[in-house]
Design a binder for these strands. Structure first.
Lengths: 252, 252
DNA sequence: GTGTTTATCGTCAGGCAGACGACTATGATC
DNA sequence: GATCATAGTCGTCTGCCTGACGATAAACAC
């Protein structure tokens, strides 16, 4: 196979982002409204072209900052700086996935704490946090009466893959803390698990499990009442990234 | 961001393959010798350009067939047809990873039973199964006296990622059976785990675990002596793909 | 036959998870 | 201020799974 620059077809390479957060006890994803054809007016995942001198992770971090103002922190640095967790998800390259040209999209998954309203080039009506079930559901009407159209391109598949990755990864890693503010209570962390998995967890067993796992949580000393009951201890994320034994997701 | 075909730089897109198998109690990967610059004469992972009308998975399956004669079976079809397991691994797109041009490589992971000698365009000296430690180790000399040079491009990183994926995935899935022939014994499956993890496992506890996990193994009725001791029962892979509870990898 | 090798079954103790009772500390309501 | 609702935290108990390891079974080598 000698080197022949004309022997390979040119591709466009993009990054698409599955940005997840927990809002009002529901797992939500960032969606932006498309301004041009194809799929004009439809909701899609944020994303854009990779630049000529840019690594894939850099491109994803740039798009994330443009869409949300979040900066991704280096996964190798365990420090909690309120930045988002960002990791590569998967790559989608069906020849027909974009009718304009051959596009290969490297999807990334970002997990962020609950944020104020998103911005998309300053136009708030063109970006929103939507519950993932609503984005993945086809037909019918959303909570605001808007008709539910499927996401543009193959973005429903990408979103589903991202949600599945998040659901399984919080089982055996401390990644659920990426959905929390730098300081959080055990109850807030439990509500993250409940929202992502869509199940109810026993507060007592959950408390025993997370406080008993070395390196998962570090008490800061402070206490806070955010929900109206007894004040809760505040924690930061510990250095541990892999949980052994893992959190167990209840059956079905 | 209006559509402008000149607004994005062209990329070459390739698939690279991490093909793993277990040979003589060691985890081995398929390596091919590069015939041209850059990295001429160095060992590399097999791979090639994605064609204009090809999906990424199709391209990976085609490359796998060209290099090994294996055909990948559809992951959605649980039938064991002696084909290899093939799944997407990750995508590597550093601007400097190929000195010739901007190349984005979508790496795939293939798991195969022990195979006869590989072929690479009919030239056996340009393809081989090598223990992964040997390929990842830098400097020194291999078992055949050949000097150990690092793999070409960023293939050492890709191989390391593929090995780590395989090591973790056999914990919670039935993927270890992809390293076995269609019919296998519990002992052969155990030796797969031992080779991939590099540890020794208790035969009695392993037997209890795998035969007690519903859907993991299906007895075929036959028995065979392949190692010189008492004849062992033969099994096929069951329909289960996720193991719950998982196999536990011993510490360190 | 005796020893070696591999496969398979059983037993036992320790650890962890699910179910759930009890107590504590706050705000809301009367 | 007493009472109630809410949320957090500590314990107990039981069942299951795992790791350690003894014992038996069935082949081959000599």
């Amino acid at each position: 196979m000698p080197y022949d620059p004309s022997a390979f077809p040119p591709f466009a390479v993009t990054v698409d982002l599955v940005v997840l957060t927990v809002r009002r006890h529901a797992l939500c994803a960032l969606a932006v409204r498309r301004g041009e054809a194809p799929f004009q007016g439809r909701w899609a995942l944020p994303g854009g072209f990779v630049r000529a001198d840019e690594d894939l992770a850099q491109a994803a971090a740039r798009e994330l900052a443009e869409e949300t103002g979040l900066h991704a922190h280096d996964p190798s640095a365990p420090a909690q700086d309120n930045g988002a967790h960002l990791e590569q998800l998967a790559t989608y390259g069906d020849p027909e996935r974009d009718p304009r040209m051959r596009v290969v999209s490297v999807a990334h998954l970002a997990l962020a704490p609950d944020l104020p309203a998103p911005r998309a080039g300053g136009d708030a009506s063109n970006a929103r946090w939507a519950p993932v079930e609503e984005l993945l559901q086809q037909g019918g009407y959303g909570r605001d009466g808007e008709p539910l159209a499927p996401l543009a391109f193959d973005h429903a598949q990408i979103l589903a893959d991202g949600v599945e990755r998040a659901r399984s990864k919080i089982e055996y890693s401390s990644l659920a803390t990426a959905f929390c503010t730098p300081e959080f209570t055990v109850g807030e962390l439990r509500r993250v698990y409940e929202a992502v998995w869509g199940v109810a967890l026993d507060p007592r067993n959950f408390h025993r499990k997370v406080t008993g796992t070395p390196g998962f949580l570090v008490p800061t000393g402070g206490t806070t009442t955010r929900q109206g009951g007894r004040p809760a201890q505040l924690f930061r994320a510990g250095g541990a990234t892999l949980l052994n034994p893992p959190m167990l997701r209840p059956e079905v």
